[in-house]
Amino acid sequence: ILELRLVQATLFKNVLEAISDLFSKANFDFSGTGLELQAMDTSHVALVALLLRAEAFNHYLCDRDLSMGLNLADMAKAFRCANNDDIITIKAEEDWSDTVTFTFESPEDGEISIFDFDFVGTNGVPLEIPEFPESEYQAKVRMPSAKFMRICKKLSSFGDSGDRDTVVIISVDKECVNFFTRGKTGTSTIVCRQTQTVDKPKEPTLIEMKEQVSLAFDLRYMNSFSKGSTLSDQVTISLSSNLPAVFEYKIAETGYIRYYMLPRIEE
């Protein structure tokens, strides 16, 4: 039997907002450890992996591993009807009837909404995701997630074709990370310096560089990744010319959301 409860719908609402525009379906793996979610976009450019440990839930009972594919658009619609302080219950019955039930209960007026979701096929997930060796990454940038989101928005408004097919070049050089894009009649560069942690200890921008790196990414995807900002105050971007870049948001003490994407290369 699977039975989970969260006393505030916000966490799950934010998770869905952070993934549902880019990924149409996801695989949800429930085990004793917690919930592991994975989704790959249809063009196999981006992968998202989420971990919410059992401790993230107010009640967590899972006595048998259960893996289910779910349609994220339908789930996002249902969750938009939920208030932030609704109590969510997630249940799957013993007979594994290929459906999962999400219940939203308003603590104020006692109204209960029940959604049953049928399992669907997924785009080839779940996948084995190795921990890539730290040493393989040329640079690592940590910054406030709101700042990263703002940068993506600024670049989108300048990019030559709006969000579509605009390329951003992220380059790290000593204590600076630059975001560069080309518009119709010019270019735009946003420079972020490493901040002194004594000034703003809560929102540092930290840059760890082994060697200079300059990589081209699709802005549309980066923009979607930046929606992880509702889940964490900080984002860590790991950059390598040989490995998928990782955009990671740690979720308090209870897990993370990681987006993977390879850079674009000259043919």
């Binding site: 063009s43 084995e128 993977y260 674009r264 290369i265």
Partner: peptide
């Protein structure tokens, strides 16, 4: 424009 690489070669099915 530079070509987008796909992730397939880095991840295998569980």
């Amino acid at each position: 424009k530079p070509k987008q690489q796909v992730l397939s070669r880095f991840f295998s099915p569980k």
